[in-house]
Amino acid sequence: MAKQLAVRVDDRLIHGQVVTQWVKVFKAQKIVVIDNNVAKDKMQKNILKFAAPPEMKVSIFSVDKAVEVWNKNQFGNMNVFVLFKDVKQIKELEEKGLKFNEITIGNMSVVGDRKLIYKSTGFTEEEAQALFDLQKDGVKIYFQTQPTDRKESLDIMTKVFPNLDA
């Protein structure tokens, strides 16, 4: 069972800010990336492993594999930092029985149908609703781009998407 577990959504996954700030704040010893597409792409997996500090253990799982590993040993006996590229896969995990207590929302590029919500974070209305659904299920979720930033409530999304079922 993981000693401590920190969960973050950041579409860049393992990058400079994660390595220099978030890993230190959470005292992470292991990074777990959960993403169905990345788990199938050998080149992306190699790039992410290379981006992590050399002493950091990195595991990259599909949603199904993450559920299997979680049920077996809850990602091991270290301080674990879990990264997601999007919120849909967190919702998929919850539907398969794996639920996290707290999730930090970081950078989500404003592309396609996504609307700017907070700093460099954008969501579609569907993604925003998925976050509110998770929150209704008891998950603490907040925006925080950098560890030094104040935690911001999900409620700011209702300004952009007033029809959300918050």
Rank of each mutant, 00 (worst) to 15 (best):
M56F: 02
S62M: 03
K99T: 02
F50K: 07
V23I: 15
F75D: 04
M78N: 13
R8D: 01
A28R: 12
G112D: 05
K85I: 09
K27D: 14
V23D: 04
D137Y: 05
A51N: 04
T104C: 13
Q144R: 11
R150G: 03
G106D: 10
G138E: 05
F61W: 13
D64H: 11
E55H: 13
F75W: 15
V25A: 14
N107L: 10
E94Y: 10
F75P: 02
D86L: 09
V19D: 01
R8N: 01
V80I: 05
V7G: 05
G76Y: 01
I90L: 10
L48R: 00
K91M: 14
V19L: 06
M56D: 01
M78Q: 15
F81Q: 07
D133N: 14
T104W: 11
Q29P: 04
K88N: 12
V63S: 13
H15W: 03
R114T: 07
I34H: 01
P54H: 06
E95S: 13
D11G: 06
Q146L: 12
V25R: 15
W22Q: 04
E125N: 09
T145H: 08
N37K: 13
K65S: 12
L131R: 10
T148R: 11
G106P: 09
D113Q: 11
S120C: 08
D11W: 09
L83I: 06
A51C: 03
E55R: 11
N101Y: 06
F123Q: 03
V69F: 08
A130V: 12
F50Q: 06
T104D: 11
F26A: 14
T145S: 15
I34W: 03
K45P: 00
L5S: 08
D137E: 14
V58K: 03
N36M: 07
I103F: 07
F50V: 10
E92V: 12
K72A: 15
V25H: 07
D11C: 09
V87H: 05
K49A: 06
K49N: 08
L98Y: 08
F26M: 11
